[in-house]
């Protein structure tokens, strides 16, 4: 695969559709010295959704909502990988998960709201079933294997295989969830610009609170490299979502 084809995939869909072939031509002619600038240009455009030329009605809202769900999925998988930490709620300290409230509020605001009519709901259920059935089946198969009993203490290669299957299933489920939001956007009404702006503000607030919480924990335990990485990731995500949210207000 050519580098230009990979680089073009980094751009928001509307930009790809409008300028994709021209960008590829420029990258092919300029060679490797243009790769970094092309990738940075893609990143900047993701932060400015109001600059996207809307080639299909509602495209910007659909892509922003999908991107927001993707942020949620990545965050969930990262927290799952990090295990119990300063951001995980427990019964003694329920406030440690307070950051989740604005994030969930934002995600709820960003997801498409179906009109209450039987045909629309029917189409939505069909899309959801078609999209989520493969990861659902995978997950069911994993649960079945885990509860067989014969694999209580698997040997090393089998344990590694099960672990890989588990993470592949989780990642696949996350990707299909994003696909579901993108597909649902073609069936039901996408949230308006102001609502998406509000959604992004809520998510940015939640991420910022989580970043502060994680930073406090990293400050207490400076030897924990994972905590420092998590803080950086959360702070970067919060900033990116905040910039995109502020930009959406302009639309």
């Amino acid at each position: 695969m050519r580098a230009s084809a990979v680089l073009i995939r980094l751009y928001p869909p509307a930009i790809r559709e409008r300028w994709g072939s021209d960008i590829a031509d420029e990258v092919d002619r300029a060679g490797p010295r243009s790769w970094f600038n092309t990738a940075v240009g893609a990143g900047k455009l993701w932060l400015h959704p109001s600059d996207w030329p809307e080639t299909v009605a509602g495209q910007t809202s659909r892509v922003v909502a999908t991107a927001l769900v993707a942020v949620g999925v990545v965050l969930t998988l990262s927290l799952r990988a990090a295990g119990a930490g300063p951001l995980t709620a427990n019964i003694d300290h329920p406030a440690s998960s307070a950051w989740l409230i604005p994030i969930l509020t934002g995600v709820v605001l960003a997801v498409p709201s179906p009109a209450l009519s039987v045909p629309v709901l029917g189409r939505l259920v069909a899309v959801a079933a078609r999209t989520l059935a493969p990861p659902g089946l995978l997950f069911a198969a994993l649960c079945l294997v885990a509860n067989l009993g014969s694999l209580d203490s698997p040997v090393c290669p089998v344990r590694v295989l099960l672990l890989v299957c588990y993470w592949v299933t989780l990642c696949f489920g996350g990707i299909r969830l994003c696909v579901l939001v993108a597909r649902a956007g073609r069936v039901v009404a996408m949230p308006s610009g102001p609502r998406l702006h509000l959604a992004l503000m809520f998510v940015a607030t939640g991420l910022a609170v989580a970043a502060v919480q994680s930073f406090a924990a990293a400050f207490r335990e400076p030897s924990e490299v994972g905590l420092a990485l998590m803080t950086c990731g959360l702070a970067t995500s919060a900033t990116a979502v905040l910039i995109a949210g502020m930009d959406l207000r302009r639309r």
Partner: peptide, 11 residues
């Protein structure tokens, strides 16, 4: 560079 040109065009 492509990123600058097409970013400018979009904006």
């Amino acid at each position: 560079r492509p990123g600058s040109l097409y970013g400018a065009l979009a904006r």
